[in-house]
């Protein structure tokens, strides 16, 4: 058993190197497509979550805590549940069936946006709320316009905000349930890294599945590394 396992892993490693460095067209296009889908979903999530997070931090209004609790709940939203709900909405027999976007990249962007928005919202609200209130009073006392105030707050919390965005990106790029259900895993059209891994595994092509999994890990690591380096740079500056 152990020998078979090792064989599979080494074969997978070998094949992964060949596929990645020969710039295999299928692998390359799946990778680029994955980045496009998740990148688009992340940008939309940022556009929704950041203004909302600022609002939740700066204004007290009825339902504020309720929204924050919903965002916290949404952080753990299982992607398959999102997939099911979005499917029911977008199928022809559903309320938005007329749009005809089920089994298209657009449907996948919608599903991933639903997954990553609560993550970014909850984490960035927490980040903004950690800014010392006295700092805000100082800024206001120095005569800053509201817009300058918002900018300074975002700047103050920049590292935590970037971590929030990366967490949202990571949550969306690694989910498989929703992409499978609303995208349909159609070759050359809606196939992303995670759904391709599921398919290749069930086909028994473990080498191809492993190759794709290495790329996915590499992407996730690149994002994390970038963030870590940025954060550590700040600390180095402090100790200089």
């Amino acid at each position: 058993m152990r020998v078979i396992f090792l064989d599979t892993v080494f074969e997978g490693l070998e094949k992964a190197f060949v596929l990645i460095f020969s710039l295999d067209r299928e692998v390359l296009s799946i990778t680029i497509f994955t980045l496009k889908i998740t990148g688009t979903a992340t940008i939309i999530s940022i556009a929704i979550a950041l203004p909302l997070a600022l609002l939740l931090t700066l204004r007290d209004f009825p339902g504020r805590r309720f929204i924050i609790s919903l965002a916290n709940l949404g952080m753990g939203l299982p992607p398959t549940v999102v997939g099911l709900w979005v499917s029911l909405m977008l199928w022809r027999s559903g309320p938005f069936g007329k749009l005809g976007i089920m089994y298209t990249p657009a449907a996948m962007v919608i599903a991933q946006t639903v997954i990553s928005t609560p993550i970014i919202l909850a984490l960035s609200t927490a980040a903004l709320q950690q800014i010392d209130k006295k700092l805000r009073w100082h800024i206001m006392a120095l005569g800053a316009t509201p817009l300058q105030m918002l900018f300074l707050m975002l700047k103050e919390a920049r590292y935590s905000l970037m971590a929030a965005i990366m967490a949202g990106f990571g949550g969306a790029i690694s989910e498989v349930g929703a992409s499978m259900m609303v995208g349909g895993n159609i070759q050359g059209y809606t196939r992303v890294l995670t759904t391709a891994i599921v398919l290749e595994t069930s086909r028994g092509h473990f080498d191809m599945a492993l190759a794709l999994s290495f790329i996915l890990i590499l992407l996730a690591y690149a994002a994390t590394l970038w963030l870590t380096l940025l954060q550590q740079r700040r600390y180095r500056n402090v100790y200089y």
Binding site: L35, K36, G39, T40, T42, I43, R158, M162, W226
Partner: peptide, 13 residues
């Protein structure tokens, strides 16, 4: 870095 991120996404889009 943020500007580059936005730029990359814009290109993707």
């Amino acid at each position: 870095a943020s500007a580059m991120l936005v730029l990359v996404f814009a290109v993707f889009l």
